[in-house]
């Protein structure tokens, strides 16, 4: 699996608005075990064909002749089968090594700690490994031209930078909340709770 595809999926998924299939070419999509791109495509094609036929019969649509071409299964030559995904946070970078906490997506209450060498990351990504950086760690099989490879990819989330407006807004909100709470504190000073 090439890194770019995973990075695209990762960055897009951070917006939560789009699914990976909206943007990533089918041959580059991460698929979980048991799902098949070709199954889904086949269903869509059949539905479209039926809709077109209905329109033709009712005389509402243009004169279209449903395709008689048999459905050909699309078999990507390059696909990634995800076995495990972690979300991680870098705690410290010491020399050539990163200390990070990772959580299994299936069991987010369990915290695991790993240390890994920086060389596990692409050279261009190493500057992203700083304290507090968030990354996803994908482990799975990559099938390329009939061969299966085990793959591990740590992909750092490229979150947008802090803008001046964000920081100023936070400052204003903090000031307003604090004023209200201070007022509350003045109201309750010296009163017991029992």
């Amino acid at each position: 699996m090439n890194r770019t595809a995973l990075a695209m999926v990762d960055e897009l998924s951070s917006t939560s608005t789009f699914s990976e299939s909206d943007f990533v070419p089918p041959e580059m999509q991460i698929k979980s075990e048991g799902t098949s791109i070709s199954d889904q495509e086949g269903k869509d094609s059949k539905d479209n064909a039926l809709n077109r036929t209905d329109a033709y019969i009712n005389g509402k649509g243009p004169t279209l002749v449903p395709s008689q071409r048999p459905f050909v299964s699309y078999r990507p030559s390059h696909r990634f089968k995800l076995l495990q995904k972690f979300e991680g946070t870098i705690l410290r970078v010491i020399g050539d090594e990163c200390l990070a906490h990772v959580r299994d997506n299936q069991d987010p209450n369990t915290v695991e700690e790993i240390t890994f060498p920086l060389e596990e990351l692409l050279e261009n990504d190493r500057h992203l490994a700083v304290e507090g950086a968030v990354f996803n760690w994908y482990i799975g099989y990559e099938d390329i031209a009939g061969q299966r490879y085990r793959k591990s990819a740590m992909i750092f989330r490229r979150l947008p930078a802090w803008r001046k407006e964000d920081l100023e807004k936070a400052k204003e909100e903090a000031k307003s909340i604090l004023e209200k709470l201070r007022q509350k504190l003045n109201d309750t000073t010296g009163k017991g709770s029992s």
């Binding site: 076995l83 790993i114 240390t115 591990s152």
Partner: peptide
């Protein structure tokens, strides 16, 4: 397969 890949990638791994 996941455990093997983790072992090959990290230097230490434990549940905290």
């Amino acid at each position: 397969s996941v455990e093997r890949t983790i072992r090959e990638t990290v230097r230490s791994h434990r549940r905290v």
